[in-house]
Simulated scan of single mutants.
Amino acid sequence: MTYETLEIERKGAVATIWMNRPDVFNAFNERLIADLGAACRALDADATARIVVLAGRGRHFSAGADLNWMQRASGYGEAENLADARSFAGMLQALSGMSKPTIARVQGAALGGGTGLAAACDMVVASDDAQFSTSEVRFGIIPAVISPYVLRAIGPRHALRYFQTGEKFRADQARAIGLVSEVVSRDELDAGVAALVEPLLAGGPLAQQAAKQLIAAVCGRPIDAAVAEETATRIARQRATGEAKEGIAAFLQKRPPAWQG
């Protein structure tokens, strides 16, 4: 598929979604939101794509909402605003809900919704000059649609600060509070992503999908008999898969598993 605002780059089992609006720092509007949602759904259905990287062309990852889009939205009625917000929420859900590992490659600004995009990915590799913010309050609005993903990453205590101050925070601060996985220099961004890709390709794709589902099923629940039964059921089901049998056989036979071939 081709997209008006994106480029899809394939290198073996790794698919990179490049946001391609560098003239506006990859700020998103209705078209970019629709393209990103469609690309996530297409790549999720593509068994040849093992890992998805989200990146931005130019100096910045994403400056958040396009000002022209925001201006149009300010004139919307409640019904139009709800439809617009649902489109954005659906795109983030498609990104976060992908059945395969996702990595955000972040340089420069990742502001507002740009922080939301990074948080919706499983992992974030950021350049040491990257800056993040949930700046919506400075425009008289709130980071509502991105909040589930940012909260999952940084927790409510840090969210209470940054959702209310709207202040920018650096990559090293973002790593300290859980939003960023690795911080590298800008010229080492691709190497930093590759360093995560290598161990990800060593894992079984179905096991990785099951691991993501496991986290969603268990996170936040009390450790009680119901959770114990849930986890026992999940590992029993996983052990019975062909992928698990192949992985254990490969280990015992001291050879790479089939998915690494």
Results as ranks from 00 to 15, higher is better:
residue 69 W to K: 06
residue 47 A to N: 09
residue 239 R to H: 10
residue 33 I to N: 09
residue 99 S to P: 06
residue 184 V to W: 05
residue 125 V to W: 11
residue 225 A to Y: 00
residue 95 L to W: 10
residue 245 K to L: 15
residue 79 A to L: 05
residue 121 C to W: 03
residue 216 A to V: 06
residue 59 R to F: 04
residue 233 T to F: 03
residue 225 A to W: 02
residue 95 L to E: 07
residue 54 L to T: 02
residue 94 A to I: 04
residue 64 G to W: 12
residue 174 A to F: 02
residue 141 I to M: 02
residue 8 I to Y: 06
residue 9 E to C: 00
residue 176 A to P: 05
residue 119 A to W: 15
residue 46 D to I: 10
residue 145 V to P: 00
residue 122 D to A: 13
residue 65 A to P: 00
residue 95 L to N: 06
residue 57 R to H: 12
residue 254 K to C: 10
residue 210 A to H: 03
residue 222 P to D: 13
residue 18 W to V: 04
residue 168 K to G: 11
residue 133 S to M: 03
residue 42 A to V: 09
residue 184 V to E: 08
residue 193 V to N: 08
residue 160 L to D: 12
residue 84 D to V: 01
residue 255 R to N: 08
residue 119 A to T: 13
residue 178 G to H: 06
residue 124 V to Q: 07
residue 239 R to M: 15
residue 81 N to Q: 11
residue 158 H to S: 06
residue 53 V to W: 12
residue 249 A to K: 15
residue 99 S to E: 11
residue 259 W to K: 11
residue 47 A to V: 14
residue 136 E to F: 14
residue 159 A to H: 03
residue 166 G to Q: 07
residue 247 G to E: 14
residue 12 G to S: 04
residue 25 F to R: 11
residue 118 A to T: 01
residue 17 I to S: 04
residue 204 G to A: 13
residue 36 L to S: 06
residue 102 T to M: 08
residue 215 I to R: 07
residue 20 N to P: 02
residue 147 S to Q: 11
residue 142 I to D: 07
residue 205 P to N: 04
residue 12 G to I: 09
residue 95 L to C: 03
residue 188 E to M: 12
residue 68 N to Q: 12
residue 52 V to N: 09
residue 160 L to W: 10
residue 154 I to D: 14
residue 249 A to V: 07
residue 98 M to G: 10
residue 100 K to W: 11
residue 108 G to P: 09
residue 8 I to H: 05
residue 89 A to Y: 04
residue 22 P to R: 10
residue 97 G to V: 04
residue 132 F to R: 07
residue 205 P to A: 04
residue 140 G to D: 07
residue 104 A to F: 10
residue 129 D to S: 15
residue 259 W to A: 08
residue 171 A to P: 10
residue 213 Q to A: 15
residue 41 R to I: 02
residue 71 Q to N: 15
residue 64 G to K: 12
residue 230 E to H: 04
residue 59 R to P: 04
residue 124 V to N: 08
residue 163 F to P: 01
residue 68 N to M: 04
residue 104 A to S: 12
residue 167 E to V: 05
residue 117 L to S: 09
residue 224 D to L: 08
residue 17 I to C: 03
residue 121 C to G: 05
residue 248 I to G: 02
residue 47 A to Y: 01
residue 176 A to F: 02
residue 193 V to Q: 10
residue 116 G to A: 12
residue 60 H to Q: 03
residue 69 W to Q: 12
residue 69 W to P: 00
residue 64 G to E: 13
residue 170 R to Y: 06
residue 139 F to I: 01
residue 118 A to N: 01
residue 176 A to M: 11
residue 183 V to Q: 14
residue 192 G to A: 08
residue 190 D to M: 03
